[in-house]
Design a protein around this nucleic acid. Sequence first.
DNA 1: ATATATTCTACTTATTTGATAGAATTTATA
DNA 2: TATAAATTCTATCAAATAAGTAGAATATAT
Lengths: 141, 141
Amino acid sequence: MKCKYAIKALINLAGNYQKGYVHTADIATEENIPKKFLEQILLDMKHAKIVNSKQGSKGGYYLLKNPKEVSVADVYRVFDGAIALLPCVSLNFYEKCDDCKDEKACSLRREFIKIREGSRLVMSKISIQSFLKPNKKLVKK
Amino acid sequence: MKCKYAIKALINLAGNYQKGYVHTADIATEENIPKKFLEQILLDMKHAKIVNSKQGSKGGYYLLKNPKEVSVADVYRVFDGAIALLPCVSLNFYEKCDDCKDEKACSLRREFIKIREGSRLVMSKISIQSFLKPNKKLVKK
DNA sequence: ATATATTCTACTTATTTGATAGAATTTATA
DNA sequence: TATAAATTCTATCAAATAAGTAGAATATAT
């Protein structure tokens, strides 16, 4: 949910990219997200340097980077942590297996790295911009 | 954990493919898995038709299918459910979004299908057999 | 000053996860 | 046929996580 809400919020902010501040309340109503929950989500993304904000009257949130430069992988890592299925194959959230003696020889690790790469690559290629582009329709001859 | 344990157990069973029954207790000690927990895991995989068992003395578990025919995707779905990040893009665990009016027009759905396919393809290609093959070493010239 | 917005901390409730416990059932075999 | 050894089933538990709520604190424009 958090990740889905986050991406919906970012799509909304992308629509207002470089056009000023957007209120949490507006995003909440437009995207059908509980307002108080969205506040937390946006704050998390501020800490992750994906968005920025201004407090007070006429304040609000705005997208820090170009929509092309914000990938689903970036957002996923903020809210769901590692893309990898095992901590020992994670690039950003690595943790050693306590039972594993020799990582280099571990076949579990060897294969799960492939899975991580499959997911990571596709999630890195999809950006907030990707959600804005309308689905291209093929014209029949 | 369940999924990891399950794959370790299957690798163990694959080593005994078509060689008779293997005791849960033996797998538990060899693979360092809590025995009672492993019992549940193996039972789940029996219900999923991945392994089969015989009760009683001289009983135990055995792999039903060729190790090549059991993919990580199969195992994942038993223990973690959908590979897809959103229920509305899942092939095996589909659920409609209650807020979504037009699925075909939903850009979230369009892009998350790509993510599902990325993960699904790589997880379908890796089988229990893949874990048995030793990592090929390149010989230096 | 005041209205309006974000920020921060704490809390609640429900679900999931990892694991344990023990009785019931099945089977081989002595 | 009794018994030992295995799976099967159901229930339970504690800890962690997820989804969401509440309210006070802070910042800012007017």
